[in-house]
Computed example of a mutant assay.
Amino acid sequence: MIEIADGVFIKRHSELDLTLGLITGSGDSLLVDSGMDPALAAELGSSGLCSPGSGPSRIVLTHNHFDHVLATEAFLPCEVWAHEDCVIDESLLENRAVYYPEPFEGTLIAPTHTFRDTVTLDVGGRRVDLHHFGPAHTSHDVVVHVPDAGVVFAGDLVEEGAEAQAGTDATPSNWRHVLDLMLELDPRIVVPGHGNPVDAQFVREMAIPALNPEAR
């Protein structure tokens, strides 16, 4: 894990250049996306970053694409937060099969807690805000804001090192508006769903992708 702000960490994966997040408070922690690799659960349990002998108490899913949600089972028991339109079912495995033809061996875990527009969570005395600013990469993108650290986890609204992806569930026409609302949070660091952390200027200058049925 790489600490990018006080008590805020990222985990980088070579597979699909994926970036996950961990937000820690006093005796509590929250994971941003579960990713694809169940081994991260054991790593967090032994890292000392979570509560002794346990993993994060909550996972926030930024959206339902397979690379962000398949390892949720490994972190149970915990709350699983997502936007109310986030659906976790076998249809997301069709896109996984494009990249990984071997069968998925785990269990798909649906959200246990949902919200519509904004909700504030207490992570060990630390405020973490979840926002949905409208459809863009998907119909249910979640932006995770850590106000005291100036950090925003943007999910796949932002990618670094590659162009953002707009699959059949995307709304490119609303994407810039969503990013503008995210930038009103005045983030110092923006963590993309894929790639290294960036700043607000990167987000202002990024190209909005065109619809591409082949995109993840």
Rank of each mutant, 00 (worst) to 15 (best):
M1R: 04
E3P: 11
E3S: 06
A5F: 09
A5P: 04
V8P: 14
I10A: 03
H13I: 15
H13C: 12
S14A: 09
S14Y: 13
E15V: 10
L20N: 09
L20P: 03
G25K: 09
G25F: 14
G27C: 13
S29E: 02
D33T: 09
G35S: 12
P38K: 14
P38M: 14
A39G: 12
L40K: 15
E43P: 13
S46Y: 14
L49H: 09
C50G: 03
S51P: 07
S54L: 07
P56I: 10
R58Y: 05
V60N: 02
T62S: 02
H63Y: 14
H65P: 02
F66G: 11
F66T: 14
H68A: 03
L70P: 06
A71H: 08
W81E: 04
C86F: 00
C86Y: 00
D89R: 13
D89H: 06
N95A: 04
R96I: 01
R96N: 00
R96Y: 01
A97K: 14
A97Y: 13
A97E: 11
Y99F: 04
G106A: 15
T107W: 11
P111E: 00
P111R: 00
T112A: 00
H113N: 14
T114W: 00
T114F: 01
F115D: 06
F115W: 12
R116D: 07
D122G: 06
G124W: 05
R127A: 15
R127V: 07
G134D: 11
P135R: 12
T138W: 15
D141N: 09
V142C: 01
V146K: 04
V146E: 02
D148F: 08
D148P: 15
V151R: 13
F153S: 02
V158N: 01
Q165M: 05
A166Q: 05
G167M: 08
G167V: 12
T168N: 13
D169L: 06
P172S: 05
N174F: 04
W175G: 12
V178P: 06
L179M: 10
L179W: 08
D180Y: 11
D180A: 14
L181D: 08
M182F: 08
L183G: 01
E184V: 03
L185Y: 05
I189M: 13
P192R: 00
P192I: 00
P192K: 00
G193A: 06
G193Q: 12
G195S: 06
P197A: 03
V198W: 00
D199T: 10
D199N: 13
Q201I: 06
R204S: 06
E205S: 06
M206N: 05
I208K: 01
P209V: 11
A215Q: 08
